[in-house]
Write a protein that binds this DNA or RNA. Structure first.
Lengths: 303, 303
DNA sequence: TTTAATTGTTCTCTTTATGTGAACAATGAT
DNA sequence: ATCATTGTTCACATAAAGAGAACAATTAAA
């Protein structure tokens, strides 16, 4: 009995579409394949494949077994490969969807570093702020900065992201520095990120949500552009810390209403289909990212 | 070459502590085991086990290979077992931590139904509202009604949970029916769930967060008890829909401020350690729960 | 230090399992 | 109805794995 070889043979029969073609692909004769399949079915006590001379159909059990065989064979190959070059280096493609700004600015360097340790991993990155269908489009995983709303996916936290409100010193000189959330509605102008609701919602000292609706002077679907506009003193910027942190540290932007916003932290998640089996390299990447950014990422400005 | 048998042999050698003992346990002779190990190492091109006549030590590669062997062998056994009794019945223990009220009221019947389909699964359920350490305490998974804050865990959405505000008709007759969130702060009394902040936060029509601080007449760490108190007309109940839905449908409690609360939906998640390999039965249970409750669970009262 | 016991390795021989190819049966297209 | 193609079964050949003995290596006890 050779379970693994049985599995490989079965997979080949299914994919080749016939015992004869499978035997050709496996460089043997059809009798051997026929016997293997018969013995496998006998051992499992289940018919996997209903076959006539001209056609074959998978039974329910057969389909289930086929899928599980694929997974285990891949698993086993990965184990052998990872042991063989014992540096535990990964190989293969990782197809990933990432948010535009976060991806370019923070994930790209992380991927590069991962690639140095695992040069045989080929990244296929889709920079995109829309929520792609991971399953339909065959992604291995996606990075998302929002909560999980889909029960076909599973999520793992990668790091923390906090909202910041900021403006350039020149702007603050001209428009005055807001001391409370309520101040934002009077005599201020805003830079708006397209893909979020037009009105901002902040929590004031007293715990009330304040809806900010002051005029929008620039509107865009790119946070970095808005950040540059903020540095140029065009208006108030309300966005994630990972976009503005450098300008804030450099003094080009001044942080506003820290106390109200520091507790509004959200998370960045790695999400992937719950059905798909996580390959070593994808699991390795997620582990790497969680470690690379950590609970307190380098862009953190509250603390 | 028989990869799987090689793996099983290697695992046995490691666990038995010597080739001789392994050979006894495998009902064969030491020469066979010795040769198998030698050939495995030759094939992998790595020394797995540094051995003298009296002792053996795993190399780094050996330890890694050993752990992966365990996983694959278990995997394979599960696949064969699940195909053999083709109803895809699972077997083994599932150790799970669940929230107290949600667990007793909604998960328990779900587990029972799962058990009817898979009678060989033994549930080991911990009803507990504290966040147990899944890894430390060896849980297979937990059900949580909150967002994921731990990067060592992964989450999958099981169903939706919405907050409801309600009170008995008798209470409303006596205290008047609140029409806005602001009304709650005047002339009302509250039933309080211990494990949440004392003040309630609701969003008013205008989008403002209203902090409710009216007097608390009953305080408890059990939602069902609070619900009964609410039915008895003791005060306002603010809790998850899955606790109050029956009383609401029976007319014992009247739903308040629906429009403000219907969009505050949160989720229930299945969470488990990202390191642990998900066994078929645990994966099957999670799939079952996601399907059992669904996106619009039976306790839903909005919509 | 020597000896004895135990363990792992290597060798040959044997057994078992698997591959081989021909003959046969079954099926569907022409 | 015929024929080409496919799957199955069989006896046989081959290769791989097991068995057991002999040997080498190591360590504990004398």
């Amino acid at each position: 009995m050779n379970q693994l070889e049985d599995m490989q043979t079965f997979v080949r029969i299914v994919e080749a579409g016939s015992i004869t073609r499978a035997s050709e692909q496996l460089n043997t004769v059809k009798s051997a394949i026929s016997r293997r399949l018969a013995e496998l079915e006998k051992r499992l006590g289940v018919t996997l494949l209903t076959r006539t001379t001209r056609s074959q159909t998978l039974t329910d059990s057969g389909l289930s077994y086929y899928q599980q065989c694929l997974r285990i064979i891949e698993d086993l190959a990965e184990v052998e490969a990872s042991i063989k070059d014992k540096h535990c280096s990964f190989a293969g493609t990782i197809k990933i969807s990432v948010p535009f700004s976060f991806g370019l600015k923070h994930l790209a360097p992380a991927f590069r570093q991962f690639n140095q340790a695992h040069p045989n991993v080929l990244f296929n990155v889709d920079f995109n702020d829309r929520k792609v269908d991971l399953i339909e489009e065959g992604y291995d995983l996606a990075i998302r900065i929002s909560t999980l709303a889909d029960s076909t996916l599973i999520a793992r936290k990668i790091t923390s992201v906090s909202p910041v409100l900021c403006a350039s010193p020149a702007y603050l000189k001209q428009y005055g520095e807001p001391k409370t959330a309520e101040d934002l509605n009077q005599g201020h102008v805003r830079l708006r990120y397209n893909l979020m609701p037009e009105a901002w919602q902040l929590v004031s000292d007293s715990g009330k949500t304040v809806v900010v609706k002051s005029p929008v002077v620039v509107s865009a679907n790119n946070g970095n552009y808005l950040c540059e506009e903020a540095i140029a003193g065009r208006g108030l910027m309300f966005g994630p810390d990972f976009i503005c942190y450098e300008a804030i540290r450099a003094g080009q932007l001044k942080l506003l209403l820290c106390e109200q916003l520091r507790n509004q932290t959200t998370n960045a998640y790695a999400v992937y289909p719950h059905t798909r089996h996580l390959s070593q390299r994808v699991r390795g990447l997620v582990d790497f990212l969680a470690d690379y950014f950590g609970e307190k990422p380098y862009w953190g400005i509250y603390s």
